[in-house]
Structures are given as C-alpha cells and as structure tokens.
Amino acid sequence: MTYGNRLRVTSAAAALVLLLAFGLAFFAAGIEADQGFSQKIFYVHVPLAIVALGGFVFGGVMAVQHLRTGDARYDLRSYVAIHIAIVLGVGALITGAIWAKAAWGVWFEWREPTLVSFLIVFLLYCTYQPMRFSIEDPDKQGRYASVFAITAGAFVPLNFLAVRLADPYIHPRVLNQGGGDLPASFRPPFYLALVGMTLLFAALYQYELSHKHSRAQLRQLRRKLGGEVEATGRSAAPQVTGA
C-alpha cells in the first residue's frame, strides 16, 4: 500500500511540473532567433537525455550496493533504473534526431559530441538486457549484471570526455549542456522540465518496482492457496522472492 500512495504523489508531481515547464516553454520563454519555434523541443530532449544518463549512473551505484551487500533488492533497483533509462534514452535519441533535422537539416550530426556520446552509451546499454537473458541462474545473472552496470556507469563520463575531445570544433549550438549561456527567459522552463523529467523517472521507477513486488506477492498468495502457479521460465528481470 505504501507503494501505491508514493506512486500517486510522484506521478501527480511529475505531471504537474512537466505541464508547468512546457507551459512556460511555450508561452513565457522567448523564440530562439536562429531556429524559431522548432527549438522548443530542446525542453524535452535535453532533460530526457540528462535524466537517462543519470538513470544509467544511478543503476551503477545500485549495482555497487548489490555487490557490496549481496542483497538482491539492489539488483532489482539497478535493473529497473537501467531499464527506464533505456526507454528515456530512446526518447532522447528520437527527439534529438527531430531537432537535428529541424535545426541543421540532418537526422544525425557527427560534429555534435554530446549526441555522439549519447549514442555510444545507448548502444552499450542495449546489451544489458540480452546479457541478463543469456545467464540462467538468477544469482549469477544479478552479479554479472552488476559488474556490467558498474563498468558501464564508469564508462559514461569517460566516454563523454573522449568524444568531446575528439571534435574540437563545436557545432554552432544554442546552448551548452549545463545551460550556462541560456538566455534568461529560457532558464526557468528548462530547469523545471529537468525537475519534472526526474520526477517522471522516479514515478516510472516506483511503478515498475511496485509492479514486480505485487506480482511476486500474488504468486506467493496463489502458492499458499494451493493454486496453480504458472512457471516463470527464463527471464532477464531479477526475480523477487517474497514481499
């Protein structure tokens, strides 16, 4: 039940903050001089990408906890964080492509190091699920997944450094990733969108965790009642035992 309430609060907060952010972005923030209206996708794309990367690193931190304590709950948290970060990552790549098409006339821009780094990180994390799936024993699966998550988590900043260095020529951009030289009227909606996106991540994270837990509880209850429990089969997701 605790899950249910927390989930409701986080979901409502995420929806509210995101609505407010996008409202401000559309009506209060100025129109960017070079790109015009299409620049508005920035308020979706950049927060998506930042939160996805944060999710990957968070998954790595949970994986460290998993290996240190041996507690399978941390493995589940690491898995869920990475899973949702991958979903947000798809969103970031799609919005990024749309923005690149609108601003520069191409779907992908190699001279934009942030975008390139993001693609490499995303490709690496795409192997997370298949790797889990190809290890049958759940304990081993969890341990190996955590080794992956820690390695990949450390890879995220290192990769950004290498890719950024690789292209000293920075494509004319409206904004730096940090938002440092954002025009003043762009800032409130951007930071609000970032907060909203983080809340969205938190809501999805809690939703998937509670889903996994309630399914495990349901199975346990069914077993207690002596009913049929469908075989779980092989799974890439960590198994939750008990509530």
Binding site: I120, V121, L123, L124, T127, M131, F148, T151, A152, F155, L158, N159, L161, A162, V163
Partner: peptide, 8 residues
C-alpha cells in the same frame, strides 16, 4: 559489450 566500451 566490448565494441562500445572500446570506442574511447
């Protein structure tokens, strides 16, 4: 796994 990891 190795390919993207070795991009840097």
């Amino acid at each position: 796994i190795a390919l993207p990891l070795l991009v840097p």
